[in-house]
Every structure is written in C-alpha cells, then in structure tokens.
Amino acid sequence: MIASARFAATLTLCLFSLPATAWAQPQTTAAGDAVALYAPDNLTAWLVMFTDSVKRTPAERAEMVANFGFTKVGFEAFKKYLPILEEQMDEYAKRDIEVTSVYLVVETDKPSEEEQVKQILDVLKRRGETPQIWAMFSRNSFKDVSGEERNKRLIAAFSDLAQCVDQSGCQLALYNYGSWFGKLDVQLAIIDGVREQTGIKIGTIFNFHRGHQHMRDFPQALQRMMPHLFAVNLNGMNWKDADYNGGGARIMPLGSGDHELTMMRQLADSGYRGPIGIIDHRSGVDAEVALQENLTGLEKLREELKSPAAE
C-alpha cells in the first residue's frame, strides 16, 4: 500500500501547488473560470469502494481519502456495502470529510418499499445528514416493454422515490449509467414527469465515462442538462470513442486521453459551477493508485486550462 506520510505530503503538495494568487482574487476570464471549477476545494472522491483491489476497512478508506486532501466523498450503497454505511460515515466524519452523495440501484416500481432504500434513509435520518441520493435502474430493467411504457413506469417509480427522499430532506438525482437509461431524452422525460406528478425537482449526474455518446454535441447537450445538473464526474476521453454507447464504461485516467480537456473547457463555458468528481472505478487497481493518477492528470490539465483554447 502506498499510504505513507511522505506520499500523503507529496500528493497534497501536488494537489495544492497552484500559486496563491490564482485563488486570492476573483477569476474574471474564461480561462480563470475553467481553472477555478477544477480547484481542489471543489473536488469529490467518487467510486472509491467497489473496484478497489485493496479491501480496505472503513477507517483505512477514510484515511486514504483524507490523505489526498478531499473534504467530500460519495458512498456506493450497493447491498454488500449497506452494513458498513454508518461506520464508513463515522470514519469520514472523524476526518472532517462530508458524504455528499449516496448511490443506489433501485429494483422495483415502488422503490420506497425496498429494504435498501428504507435502510439508507433510516441511517441518514438518525444521523441528521442530507446527502444527495443518486439512483438508477439497471440496463437490464424493463426489457419487455416499449419505450413509451418504460418511461411511464420510470416516472412513476422515481416519483415514488422522490417523495420519500424529499421527506428525508435529501435531493434525488438520476445517475447517468449510459445505455438506454443514460439517454438525455429519457432522463429529461423522467425529470419533467416527476416534477409534474409530485412538484419535486430532481436532477441528473453526468459521468464522462458514460457520456461518450455526447462527445460530438457536448455543448448542446449541456445546455439541455444545465437546469438539472447536480454533479459531473471526470474521466480521460478519447475522440475515437465518440458515439460509444455500449454496456462497458471506457475508464481512463485524466490527462491520458485526447479530448477530456476540450470537454472540461466546454463544461466551464456552459456556466456549470457545481461539484466535480474524481473517480477510481478501475477494476483490479488500487484506489489509491487510481486517485493519484487522476489528480496528477488533473493538475496537468489545470495548467493547460490557464491558457485560452487554440483556435
């Protein structure tokens, strides 16, 4: 394992190595806005559990996240991790790290009655915490119904979930996992339908690693997403993967692709100023190694963002 005092100090220095003047004054240029969006204090550690090759305890995981300088993190509430939800939140809290999102995959047309949903909301209520709830159906759901019928059932299911999430003081967002569930038209139809049925505003989460189908029209897609966009998670992107919409994600470290810099500029230009997620999500890789690679790549990209885009 790489977790040593020297490693933590080196990585923290890398993460906060921009000159103080870069953060001491309001950013007024487009380049400055782009750099500020990806500043260390706007980063969230995401997907640091289920693909981690090192089976860390909740305390070890929290220590790893803290050593990188993160103050915000998400929790992947798959069923096998539900028993440690409260313990993991305790360990994060000891290190002044806020759990800002809890992610789950719902399975039925009545999510509010699912035991996993009840358990998550019970823990959050008991703790008095209100992270966003990021939810999705698997791409294997609704195989035997038409698109129109599927959308009706999705709207009904997420209306049910939105009401119990809203009662808990949390916000609900659709987690863009690619495939049919990640199609922008489907997500916007659900968002609008839930608002019409319940009066509750829900949002969406955009993942670069599940967003290759929007590489060609990203500015236009962002314009449609912006009123509902709660968070964006970064990934290395290659132009050769434009239009990809298959089942498997294309996971690459930041700075190793040829198109993430363009998309990051476009995201900043859209006016988005919400949280930015830094992911692990590479099977068989130590989460500490993956996060280090992404943060190192992000530092390089931030330097490039200081300069205007080439014409």
Rank of each mutant, 00 (worst) to 15 (best):
G193M: 12
G147K: 13
T204K: 00
Q171K: 15
T204A: 09
G182S: 07
Q197N: 06
D160Y: 03
L222A: 10
N207I: 05
N235Q: 12
Q132L: 04
Y177P: 06
F142G: 07
Y175M: 03
S141R: 08
R224Y: 05
A162H: 04
S146C: 00
V145K: 03
T198S: 14
Q132E: 08
M225P: 10
L234P: 11
K183S: 05
F230H: 12
V186K: 01
Q213G: 03
V186A: 04
E149L: 03
F230M: 13
L229G: 11
D185W: 02
I133V: 08
N207K: 06
F137N: 01
F208D: 10
S179F: 05
I155F: 00
K143S: 07
M215C: 14
Q213R: 15
H209V: 02
L184S: 06
A162M: 03
G147I: 00
L229S: 10
Q132M: 10
K183V: 02
H228I: 11
T130L: 02
P219E: 13
D192A: 12
R224M: 12
Q187A: 10
T204C: 09
H228K: 06
G203A: 09
D185V: 05
S168A: 15
C164Q: 12
A231P: 01
F142Q: 06
F158Q: 04
M226V: 08
A231V: 09
M225W: 08
W134I: 01
R216V: 15
E196V: 07
Q167L: 04
R150P: 04
N151P: 03
H209S: 15
I155G: 02
R150L: 02
N140R: 09
G147C: 04
F142E: 09
Q163V: 08
A157L: 05
R139K: 08
N207M: 05
C170R: 05
Q132G: 03
Q223F: 11
Q220L: 11
W180S: 08
A162P: 01
Q220V: 14
G169R: 05
V186M: 12
N235H: 08
K152L: 00
Q197C: 00
F206A: 05
Q171V: 07
V145N: 01
D160T: 07
V194Y: 06
Q171H: 14
T130C: 07
A135S: 14
D160L: 00
P219I: 07
G211W: 10
M225S: 04
V194D: 07
G211E: 11
K143L: 11
A135M: 01
G236S: 13
H212R: 10
M215Q: 15
Q167W: 00
G236V: 10
P227W: 12
